[in-house]
Write a protein that binds this DNA or RNA. Structure first.
Lengths: 337, 337
DNA sequence: TAGTTGGATGGTATCGATAACAAAGGCGTT
DNA sequence: AACGCCTTTGTTATCGATACCATCCAACTA
């Protein structure tokens, strides 16, 4: 069960096979110059000895790790998970491995995390969001690798970005609701100051409402992000108490929107007849619950895929690479008239 | 924006500060013997030069990576995400980093992944599930590090395990439903042969039904795992066509259970009056949807935390470490009578 | 036949940090 | 004053794979 002797190295295989360590090394690289017989003999010896390639040594000498560092706010969020999935599938073609870290929606934690990740000498770093602490920004700027910011359009991009305007998407939702005939519209979001994308969405709500000359006081802060279904339900309860005449609610995500929906159902209110609900993120739940939820699809997986191919282009030294502006899409479903 | 000269090393800091590289190295280790003045001078020089610690070199020389390799079926599953979260928070105390890989519910892919992960020389490896390909098993057995299997009670454990009987939990659910007075009970799960935990749950269903002398033919295969809400809804539709007199359904997860619930709602059926529904996993949705879902809480986060502390105990050389048997808990809610 | 080409292989130094050991200096004790 | 001990710092070798350059030899050309 447990090994006492230490694991074999390429030198051991070389000894057994009667070749030089250099040749053993070549046998493990797919595109190298080596005869088929030699390679087969080496691979067989490796299998027999139970050899496991040592990436730490390879990394140091070749100054390549095949790591791509990625920070996301939370692993428990289908949107970010999808982005990581899309990125992962794109990078798999190059045998690159994702080194994932969670910031827990905290810029301080992000800073700490970025520092830790950079120590592992990744080939590139992908961060979620376009706002960072001063120190984190400096770390990223000084890093000798490509930096990509996602899920946002940074005020001052560090490297390239793949994102969209979080304020813009909510403006679009407000515009749609106003066009449909609503005017008493509320917003349920997280506490200001933590989730920067959430704050941007709330900002977009305020701007759009002002532009339409509508009341902007219907704001419910549902606690620190991420806002759960339960917190969405609680926020809806508070909203209905404070502003019983509200006609429509925009929630910071489909999860809180679903929570809000269940609160209405428990109170015997009909959606959308008595109140309309809009979400964000095109989570599966919004497409299947009763009634289905009007939402905004940010194309989370696509963000990951496009980040991946942008990254590969940069690493390949392509010259004409540019930022990628994602076009989120309003999906009107049963929860709004 | 981009650096031309190559990043500074400890040797550079040593030159600037007028000490030996060894002393610089010591300045970065918290518990080492070094005077406060020297350390401060070194850290300041490091900051000025924009030094970033090189973990690849450190890893090679010290033969320690502080990596813990983890395989999970899918990142897009709140249960496994919770387990990773619990593990992550436990390991954070030791500054260990999780190296995560997704098997996509595929044992072949798991084998490939385990091989890739072992190359990075992790300090330990945590795999989800207790069934593996022969080669994967061999790789794990030969690995000179602790191996922990989770979310299952392996027939032949490789190292330690932190899990529960997937068949057992469903047996418990069936027993409960039978006790409550149901007899025409169905099971909605994934296709056999892929998701081993899902297959075990289905097996538990069959065993329990036979034990009670009940009809075991009400089985719906909803496609390859993971089973989405949509697939749960479709499966429910098929179930209602094939076996319209079904009294209760057990779904392989809360997500498919919720899908099944929505299908009933769209058909104007009442839950639990017309049909009862049970799920698995204690996802948030089951605690908030209308009606709330009867489910089984496998204590996903707890599995992660316990795996973490078991791991630390093993790495610390504790002698009395044993397997951890998780006690999943039946939570009876509104979706069953 | 001599010269050239290119595929296959070997030798050596090196990536950057640190384990292991050595040594210098300060302080207290007898 | 001599000794030992502890704190702080330095020296050297090393982790394991591979970049770089050299070499060998068979096959082909002129």
């Amino acid at each position: 069960m447990s090994q006492i002797r230490k694991p074999p190295t390429m030198a051991d295989i070389a000894r057994v096979t009667g070749v030089s360590p250099m040749t053993v090394s070549r046998a493990f690289k797919t595109d190298s110059l080596i005869s088929k017989e030699t390679r087969d003999a080496i691979l067989k010896a490796a299998e027999d000895l139970g050899y496991v390639f040592d990436a730490t040594a390879s990394n140091l000498r070749s100054q390549k790790t095949d790591f791509v560092a990625v920070t996301i706010p939370s692993i428990n969020n289908a949107n970010f998970a999808d982005t990581v999935g899309g990125l992962s599938e794109t990078l798999a073609a190059r045998n690159m491995q994702i080194l994932l870290g969670y910031t827990n929606y905290d810029m301080q934690e992000e800073e700490r995390l970025i520092e830790q990740l950079l120590r592992r000498k990744p080939e590139a770093i992908v961060v979620t969001g376009g706002k960072h602490t001063a120190r984190a920004r400096k770390l990223l700027e000084n890093a000798p690798i490509p930096v990509i910011e996602t899920w946002d359009v940074p005020a001052e991009p560090i490297g390239r970005f793949v994102g969209f305007s979080n304020a813009g998407v909510v403006r679009g939702m407000v515009d749609h609701l106003v066009r449909t005939g609503y005017s008493r519209i509320a917003f349920i979001g997280g506490d200001v100051g933590r989730d920067t994308r959430g704050s941007d969405r709330r900002q977009g709500f305020l701007e759009a409402m002002r532009q339409h000359g509508l009341d902007t006081s219907r704001l419910i802060a549902a606690g620190p992000p991420p806002i759960s279904m339960r917190e969405g339900a609680n926020a809806m309860a508070r909203l209905l108490e404070q502003f019983p005449d509200t006609e429509a609610v925009i929630c910071v995500s489909d999860l809180s929107a679903f929570g809000a929906l269940t609160e209405c159902q428990r109170r015997g209110m009909r959606v959308p007849e008595d109140i309309s609900i809009g979400g964000f993120g095109a989570y599966e739940i919004g497409s299947i619950c009763v009634p289905t939820l009007t939402t905004i699809d940010a194309h989370a997986r696509d963000i990951g895929r496009k980040t991946g191919s942008l990254l590969l282009d940069i690493l390949d030294g392509k010259q004409d690479v540019g930022d990628v502006l994602i076009k989120p899409q309003l999906i009107v479903r049963e929860s709004t008239r």
